[in-house]
């Protein structure tokens, strides 16, 4: 199962004057939840469509289990996708929606009932999908992705429209899928949605990968030794600068410094006898780390637009 994953290599795609994909490359590992994160328009959905053979790239390759998606005979048994949960025929029941997808993969009605149960949709299986809330549609989309019992799942913004309870359910569900050894690629434009869920993140902006790393590593790098000091004295900023730190914020009674570990901050302030009441090591959230990483890309775009 560990071999069957998604590998994207050097994808380029242009829509008119917009370069949607600009050398997108990454891989998805089995047994992990890989967050695919970037602002709207970064190329996440386009990448997923290229992986599924829906859009043709101008250059580059996307392989699923080592083969192009369009060459797979029963593709949903290799990759379970959820692109747009709202894409439903409103008058068709949830069960019938899954039934035609099952038929296309040579699967029977029994498998449909299994995934309905898994997604918690058994009660509403015979209701018209048009009446479903977005959260229920997301569950139906997940059920469809699971039909072929694929080793890899690829979900585009599955948290969209879900209530908090649904988000918690979805996180747990994705974790259990990864726990079964499956590779799960989940896109989102909100890093916070993937907190406590993703093991690996691929951060994208402007059609290419900005960062591809383990979540733990990302948090470490983003925390970057920022320390906030609460001080009554006025010389703290100068003292810390002299000690080799970079003062990023000097307010009325707090000073934030980076480039100095907390023990060195304490030592420097003590040596100059600057009074301080609190030294706090800043712990970055995934969101902070993400914003820090994408700031550069976003700024670049902003200046380009201004020009």
């Amino acid at each position: 199962m560990s071999e069957t994953t998604i590998v994207v290599d050097g994808l380029r795609k242009r829509f008119g004057s917009a370069q949607a994909l600009d050398g997108m490359s990454f891989g998805v590992r089995a047994g992990q939840i890989t967050g695919f994160i970037g602002p709207n328009g970064a190329g996440k959905s386009t990448t997923m469509r290229v992986i599924l053979g829906l859009d043709r790239p101008d250059a580059g390759t996307a392989l699923v289990g080592g083969r192009p998606y369009r060459a797979l005979r029963r593709p949903l048994c290799h990759l379970g996708p959820l692109l747009d949960a709202a894409a439903l025929q409103p008058s068709r029941s949830a069960r019938n929606h899954l039934l035609w997808i099952a038929r296309s993969q040579g699967l029977g009605a029994a498998r449909v009932d299994e995934v309905l149960e898994q997604a918690g949709l058994r009660q509403v299986a015979r209701r018209a999908a048009g009446g479903f809330s977005l959260g229920m549609r997301q569950r139906l989309g997940i059920a469809a992705a699971l039909l072929g019992d694929p080793p890899t799942l690829m979900l585009d913004e599955p948290f969209n429209g879900m209530d908090p309870e649904g988000i918690i359910w979805m996180r747990g569900f994705l974790r259990s899928l990864a726990g079964q050894g499956r590779a799960v690629l989940v896109s989102s434009h909100l890093m916070s949605e993937l907190q406590d869920c993703a093991n690996q993140v691929v951060i994208v902006g402007r059609g290419r990968v900005i960062a591809d790393m383990a979540v733990a590593e990302l948090l470490r790098s983003a925390s970057g030794g920022r320390v906030t000091v609460r001080t009554g004295g006025s010389g703290a900023a100068d003292v810390l600068r002299a000690a080799g730190g970079t003062v990023t914020d000097a307010g009325h009674d707090t000073v934030t410094v980076s480039g100095l570990a907390s023990d060195r901050v304490i030592a420097a302030l003590s040596a100059r006898a600057v009074p301080f009441s609190e030294v706090a090591v800043h712990r970055a959230s995934l969101e902070d780390a993400y914003l820090e990483l994408t700031r550069e890309a976003v700024e670049f775009r902003a200046s380009e637009t201004a020009r």
């Binding site: 829906l54 998606y69 894409a87 993969q105």
Partner: peptide, 18 residues
Amino acid sequence: TGEYRRGLIRTTLTATPA
């Protein structure tokens, strides 16, 4: 055209790439 209108064509072509 109903499939295009609802985006269902993507589901169709994902299930049957041929």
